[in-house]
């Protein structure tokens, strides 16, 4: 086996459960799709909403990596206040024109950064020793124990978002 393949093989870690592997795959794909939509979508309001979804998926990643408290901070502070503030502020303005013109340099820069981070990640941080996958169990525990509070929180945040956008749009017209 060549050295490159050995490095790659040593970097392949499974979570021991097909469910968690599939969940990670779905989360990664969702995160990438929403990030692309955030950058390229025409409407600024919808772009901000896609950013909120990127934050949600990141919170799920935090849970799986074993940081449930940070996942809650990401959900409540980052998505709940930061991104919501962007959405409400932008929805009060008129929509500007799209001025997105990707060219060959953007692809080169993106590819370079992607390769750089993957190489650094493989060579530095791939050793699986202290990583325990307790985060997902904590997530299930919190969901079971506090499901009603979480449901209320989601409904309240969604209602606040919808009403704020509707009110600001109505004032603008």
């Amino acid at each position: 086996m060549s050295p490159l393949l050995e490095i790659f093989a040593s970097s392949v870690i499974t979570l021991g459960s097909p469910f968690l592997d599939i969940a990670l795959l779905v989360l990664a794909a969702t995160s990438i799709i929403f990030a692309y939509l955030t950058v390229t979508y025409k409407s600024l309001v919808y772009s901000s909403i896609f950013l909120a979804f990127v934050g949600l998926v990141n919170a799920a990643f935090f849970m799986i990596l074993g940081y449930p408290l940070l996942a809650f901070v990401q959900l409540i502070i980052y998505v709940g206040s930061g991104v919501l503030f962007i959405i409400i502020s932008i929805s009060m303005l008129k929509e500007p024109k799209l001025t997105f013109r990707p060219n060959i340099y953007s692809w080169v820069i993106t590819l370079f950064i992607f390769v750089l981070i993957v190489v650094i990640g493989i060579s530095v941080g791939i050793a699986p020793s202290e990583l325990t996958y307790l985060g997902i169990f904590s997530a299930v525990h919190y969901l079971v124990e506090y499901w009603f509070s979480i449901l209320l929180l989601v409904l309240a945040l969604s209602m606040a978002l919808i009403v704020s956008i509707a009110v600001s749009r109505g004032e603008e017209e």
Binding site: T14, D21, A28, I32, Y36, N103, G121
Partner: peptide, 29 residues
């Protein structure tokens, strides 16, 4: 089955896409 390797891939793509949009968008928001 690639497990945590997907986390690196996802993080790298997020950073790359963000820099891509930051460099070639002319819209402040």
């Amino acid at each position: 089955i690639i497990g945590l390797f997907l986390v690196i891939i996802s993080a790298a793509v997020l950073i790359g896409v963000g820099v891509w949009g930051m460099v070639y968008n002319k819209n402040l928001v």
